[in-house]
Simulated assay, not measured.
Amino acid sequence: MVKSFFRLADTAWDALVKPIIFVHIPKTAGTSFRKGADTYFGRSKICQDYGRVSPLTSPLIKKWASGEMDSWSFYQDFNRQGYQFLTGHFHASKYIDIFDAGQMITFLRDPVNRIVSEYNHKVRHQGYKDSFESFYRSRENINRQLRLVGQGNWSQLGFIGLVESFEDSLLLLNKKFGINIPILRQNITSNEVVHSRGLTNEQLSELRTLNAKEYEFYNCARTQFDWRLHLARNGACFTRGAATALESGYLKGWAMPEGGTEAALLRVKHNGEVVAETKASEYNPIYKARGLGRRGFIGFSFDLTDIKDLSSIEVVVARTGQPLPILSSLTRLS
């Protein structure tokens, strides 16, 4: 618990200008969070998208999915009906170009623990009969968190919390958005068919191999979460962003400090030594379209053509030392 260093805002829901879009990854405490959102915003302000045939899905979503209205009309009706929160088991890409990416949030969980939990849920509540091995080898259950959030989208989301640090995550999220969603415990059971601690070494090895990309993503997102927590404790600003590509020797990306409008000052380190410095102020129409800040003037590029070994490159925020994730992966930079 880290309540001592947070002052949660008392902002009422009707003071919010933009809705929050929650990518509800199965078995990541999403039901608890959604119930807390119901309590805070009120059920009438919650729009749900759990698929066209689900009774939980709101009529507006079904109307849009059926093709009766285009995306712009959907967006207008969504706002006209006063929704403040959209949730469901959807891919982030479904809504990231309709609503600002910075308003999108999700929670992650250790991949193996999440897969075990979803298998147990399927067996208990949906009559799943196949083996655990059949379940986790199924294509739809491999790297599922990464696929729902999106390899190229996750750094753009406004907030990514962790199930393993749920209370701290909720405090950070409330602080960022100026809301006060309460901590509720829902959908918890101890009647497990398979338990993570009971997996064999062979099962664990196969699960980690199958979900290697997701583990890389999860660990990277966890590092960013730890930095957000560290900076919040010290009253400092977190910077969203990422190095996204290496093109013709130039490392490119974006960065936007939260709670301000100044361009982020960034440094590139090679083997721990600063080799370049620049501000993230270049224009990119994609960043503008997704509402990432400063009307799209948040891009950066570093000339790395003179550096032969790129395996030890880091991009950090000059003011805080916070590292930005390198989405093109260090293996491709080396």
Rank of each mutant, 00 (worst) to 15 (best):
V2R: 14
V2G: 15
K3R: 14
S4D: 14
F5P: 06
F6V: 12
A9D: 10
A12H: 15
D14N: 14
A15S: 12
V17Q: 15
I21A: 02
P26E: 06
T28H: 01
T28A: 05
D38I: 15
T39D: 10
G51K: 00
R52K: 10
S54T: 01
S58C: 04
P59W: 01
K62T: 02
W64I: 01
A65R: 01
S66C: 09
G67N: 04
D70A: 02
D70H: 01
N79I: 02
N79R: 11
G82S: 05
Y83V: 00
L86W: 01
T87S: 12
T87I: 08
H91P: 03
H91D: 11
A92Q: 03
D97S: 12
I98N: 09
D100Y: 04
A101T: 00
I105R: 00
D110T: 11
P111L: 09
N113C: 13
H121D: 08
K122Y: 07
K129H: 04
D130A: 12
D130H: 12
F132C: 09
E140V: 15
N143E: 09
Q145P: 01
Q145S: 12
L146W: 05
V149R: 02
G150P: 05
G152R: 05
W154D: 05
S155R: 08
S155I: 03
L157F: 08
G158E: 03
E167H: 14
E167S: 15
E167K: 14
L170F: 06
L171C: 08
L172M: 12
G178M: 05
G178Q: 07
P182K: 11
I188Q: 12
E192G: 06
L199T: 02
T200I: 10
E206G: 03
L210E: 05
N211E: 08
A212H: 11
K213D: 11
E214R: 05
Y218N: 04
A221R: 01
T223R: 15
H230A: 12
A236Q: 14
G241V: 01
A242P: 04
T244M: 07
L246M: 13
S248D: 14
G249F: 07
G249C: 08
K252A: 06
A255W: 00
G260D: 02
V268D: 02
K269T: 14
E273H: 14
V274Q: 09
A276I: 07
K279Y: 14
S281G: 10
S281E: 13
G291Y: 10
R295N: 11
G299E: 01
L304H: 07
D306P: 13
D306Q: 13
D309Q: 07
I313H: 07
V316G: 07
V316K: 12
R319V: 08
Q322F: 00
L324V: 02
S329D: 15
T331F: 11
T331P: 03
R332M: 07
